[in-house]
């Protein structure tokens, strides 16, 4: 019968597609929630990332996934591609499925507050991963790096190199999206270190990038045109190094750290690209946040909450600055190095 045939076709298309989908996702988080047959109830955590566009977020996401799998926790995923409204829907869907905890990477510190409140109302613990919220009475825990301290340590090293060069260096900073407290913390750390350096370094360009690689490229390009003698560049995130590289190579200034024409380069994050560039000798230093430690802490907070232990509202990732000088010893603790080596 044709009628039945059309039913069957439609259904089998759906089912076929669904099966493919399940097969594909099995490699990571496993199966459906609340379905374990054994006596102990399996925990479920919802993870909502604002983006997966840079390797930093991918590394964090993978680490959360792996840890959940190791602890027998079901992890539900949501990626919002920069759309706050979509993220809100994802969080609401987690709440509706009565997860045991929610880990959020928000787009900014304000729009996440209604989400936290919604979770509070359902009595579900919330962890903000890496990006803290603006001051609010909504209950949550933020696990985030101490941007100011790590950045200041990194820039201090860059300044020491500038002083060693013997001439007054002109500097440029690539800033992040300033509605993100991380971006603000890093900028403030940079400015504080420069201020301490006295007149050894003068900041001539502050490039707003909104965490966008193309904007960074255009910004660096015009700044280098206006000030061809810039000798020190700090980027608020390592993922913008390729933009800097492309501009400097065109100007013939992409040189290793021991070459005479070298532009002093520093960054933040400690990702695989930065590790690669440091190993090759182009980048002088980068502030490393301990992604893996942050992931462990985030999950621990939720486990603690389940166990009835109160969590602090803020957990600082102290991080460290890795430089050409201390690279050998600190390399094993740098997440970017782990990723880069795994890649090989």
């Amino acid at each position: 019968m044709k009628l039945r045939a059309s039913f069957t076709v439609t259904l089998s298309v759906f089912l076929g597609v669904l099966l493919c989908g399940c097969g594909g996702s099995d490699s990571g988080g496993n199966g459906r929630p609340a379905s374990s047959a054994s006596g102990t109830k399996k925990l479920t955590i919802g993870v909502a990332f604002e983006t997966l566009q840079t390797e930093f977020w991918v590394a964090a996401f993978d680490k959360l996934k792996a840890d959940c799998a190791a602890k027998g926790i079901t992890m539900l995923e949501g990626v919002a591609d920069g759309d706050t409204s979509k993220q809100f829907d994802q969080v609401k869907s987690f709440i509706n499925r009565k997860v045991d905890g929610i880990i959020i990477v928000p787009k900014d510190g304000k729009t996440v507050i209604p989400m936290i409140k919604a979770a509070n109302a359902a009595n579900i613990p919330v962890v903000l991963y890496n990006r803290p919220a603006d001051p609010t009475d909504a209950q949550h825990t933020a696990v985030a790096p101490d941007n100011f301290a790590i950045t200041k340590e990194t820039v201090n090293y860059l300044v020491s190199l500038a002083k060693k060069s013997g001439k007054k260096q002109k500097a440029m900073i690539l800033m992040g999206d300033l509605s993100d407290v991380n971006a603000i913390g890093r900028r403030d750390g940079f400015e504080a270190a420069i201020k301490e350096a006295g007149d050894a370094v003068e900041v001539v360009a502050r490039i707003p990038t909104d965490w966008n690689q193309e904007k960074a490229l255009a910004g660096v390009q015009s700044a280098m045109q206006a000030n061809p003698d810039i000798g020190l560049i700090f980027t608020s995130s390592d993922f913008m190094f390729p933009s800097i590289k492309s501009v400097l190579s065109n100007l013939g200034k992409w040189k290793k750290h021991n070459a005479p024409n070298h532009v002093i380069l520093g960054g933040f994050d400690g990702d695989a690209t930065a590790y690669q560039l440091m190993a090759e000798g182009y980048v002088d230093a980068t502030g490393v946040q301990d992604v893996y430690w942050e992931a462990e802490q985030a999950i621990q907070v939720i486990l603690d909450a389940k166990a009835g232990k109160a969590a602090p509202s803020r957990i600082d990732d102290k991080g460290f600055a890795i430089t050409q000088a201390n690279m050998k010893e600190l390399e094993p603790r740098m997440w970017g190095a782990v990723v880069a080596k795994k890649r090989k």
Binding site: G21, C22, G24, S25, R32, E77, V79, D81
Partner: peptide, 23 residues
């Protein structure tokens, strides 16, 4: 929503949605 509840990853949902709209 259904695809989401199946706990598919985000890109997979996008792929399937695109395919279904085409169909």
């Amino acid at each position: 929503n259904g695809l989401n509840l199946l706990n598919l990853s985000d890109f997979m949902i996008t792929i399937i949605k695109g395919a279904v709209i085409l169909i």
